[in-house]
Amino acid sequence: MAAGSPTDPTGRLVTLRRKVQLTIDGATLSVSEGSTILDAAKSLGIDTPTLCFAQNLTPANACRVCVVELEGARTLVPSCARRVEPGMVVHTDSARVRDARRTVLELLASSVDMSATPKFAEWCERYGARPTRFGTPTPRPVVDDNALFVRDYAKCMLCYKCVEACGDDAQHTFAIAVAGRGAHATIATELDTPLPDSACVFCGNCVGVCPTGALQFRAEHELREADAWDESRQSQIDTICPYCGVGCSLTLHVQDERIVKVTSPVGSEVTHGHLCVKGRFGFEYLGKR
């Protein structure tokens, strides 16, 4: 971009965005060009279920729980990835949409342990999904190969978020990728090498974006195993990382006066929700005094 690009009074680049008018569930609205249908629906207060979507990652388009009906389109479209166009007419709660979302939820529940996925039970209720209709997931052993976090792939729904966070949406370390194909696809390092021998730098950004609890801080995993994980007793407090001078925003998840998990707000201009190994895991000195 040229030096002469328009800037706002604080000097930030301003992209002059046109407004796009569309109709969602009978309501007509205008949103900025470049918004997604999901953004537009949100501005109307419509609560759309999402799993593979995250504000700080490229839409992976994989889970399909956010599909909506777009008039003129042959199939339903993913609202998280589809950008608005003038004159679109969208239905977010038609029978087609409800049927598809219900079956997607049932398929997920039949193949993945969704028990640690926030809001999943609520969505099943909303769409009348019966989680065991297509069978129950196969148990898989937890992969426990490092001191900081565990990988419970029975809970992995292959949303691609961890791969994106490890890859070019954030960390650029590329320690993990999707391997295998179809029903045999998994998230893996090369030759399933244990993480400490892989390229992993333990930033935990994969843990930070995992929507199903397949990746868990060791403390969370242990508490869950002991049936002592209780989010109703947890508080989340934002503060700043104590290490280098970048000043990363941290959200401390505290249960019973103990830090059990560290994340970063996705809206942070400093971190975009991503941290390094020290910021995410380097808090343990507090408890060692």
């Binding site: 889970c63 399909r64 079956t103 398929l107 997920l108 729904m157 292959l158 194909r181």
Partner: peptide, 21 residues
Amino acid sequence: FRHESCGQCVPCRVGTTKVDD
């Protein structure tokens, strides 16, 4: 289809196995 699904999206990855089953 079960064999050839790439596995990217849930309907196809899981759905094709359920049809086969």
